[in-house]
């Protein structure tokens, strides 16, 4: 197992290195940079000044030089400065992370609370009316664009409750903040809970067909105990795996949802930073997301290996 771990870890680092190169190169082939934007917000100004600003921002070196500067900066714990706010990148990103993490965890909570039990019900009652209803609901969950759902929710809130659940300033307490995040989290979580519901259902059905379940039934175990003690436990395995992948998908949903609900989290920040060509923010933020995704997948793999005796560590 030790060797396998080391190997997986090595691959992980390799992947992250590749991402850093790709994102860095992509950003620099994007037409226009921050200097253009600064000039744009100032209406046209003296083109001779452009070179000076580019030099100030370290944008005048070759792309390789710039890359080396970035990576060696990271090695020294210096992520650079945001081009837009001129504050250290850490200061810009760090306060936004907890907001997005809270939102993502709440969405994941919704996913598990609704997805798993409804999936089980759907499987146990296969082909019943309730199964069909749940399947259609879960399919619509996968079909509604997250931002549309968010817009509809906002419309409904203003029309019926005369209030709007958007962020217009730091909430006074944690409770207030969670209440504010609950609605966007539900909007994001709808999609993932639909996915988990479908997966749980098919995994359950698969397991229910297996021999040992039949054996358990033959031995006279009650239906309830078969369903929940034997089948569910085994069915959860693939669900755990997918939850890992879904964590990456959640980020996509978070981008649009944070935009609609005006939540100052990292997901929306990324879009804004791409727009304003704030390279230091985009680079480091994308790396952060990639690290989270890669690490989550790594953990899920380990969990999977630990849970499923059939997997060997030799790969």
């Amino acid at each position: 197992m030790g060797a396998y771990l080391v190997r997986r870890f090595g691959l992980m680092l390799l992947t992250l290195f590749g991402i850093s190169v790709i994102i860095f190169t992509l950003l620099r082939i994007v037409p226009g940079n921050i200097v253009d934007i600064l000039f744009d917000t100032a209406g046209m100004v003296d083109p001779a000044e452009k070179a000076r600003i580019a030099a100030d921002l370290g944008l005048d070196g070759t792309i390789v030089q710039q890359y080396v500067n970035w990576i060696s900066g990271i090695a020294q714990g210096n992520l650079g400065f945001s081009y837009v706010s001129e504050k250290p990148v850490v200061e810009e990103i760090a306060p936004r992370v907890p907001i997005t993490v809270k939102l993502a965890l709440m969405a994941l909570g919704f996913t598990i609370i609704f997805g798993v039990p409804l999936g089980v019900i759907s499987a146990v009652r296969q082909n019943s009316a309730i199964d069909y209803t749940l399947r259609i609901i879960s399919l619509s969950g996968l079909s509604l664009p997250a931002f549309w759902l968010a817009l509809l929710i906002l419309m409904a809130f203003v029309a019926w409750f005369d209030t709007i659940p958007i962020y217009t300033g730091r909430p006074a307490s944690l409770g207030e903040e969670l209440a504010l995040l609950a609605i966007p989290a539900a909007a994001v979580g709808f999609r993932s809970s639909s996915l988990v519901m479908r997966l749980t259902r098919s995994a359950m059905l698969e397991v229910l067909r297996q021999d040992y379940i039949r054996t358990a039934r033959a031995k006279g175990a009650t239906r309830q105990s078969v369903n929940y003690r034997h089948a569910l436990r085994n069915a959860l395995l693939p669900v755990v795996t997918v939850l890992g992948i879904e964590a990456a998908f959640l980020i996509g949903g978070l981008i649009v949802t944070e935009t609609v609900f005006n939540i100052p989290g990292v997901a929306r920040f990324l879009v804004e930073a791409i727009r304003s060509r704030d390279y230091p923010i985009v680079q480091n933020l994308v790396m952060l997301i990639a690290i989270v995704v890669v690490v989550v997948n790594f953990i899920v793999d380990m969990l999977y290996a630990a849970l499923d005796p059939r997997i060997k560590y030799s790969d």
Partner: peptide
Amino acid sequence: IEMPIITSRSTAMLAFIAGRL
């Protein structure tokens, strides 16, 4: 003076109507 940054005009107007601004 507090100025929350709201880039979506529609969201901002809803917040104004709802009395948050």
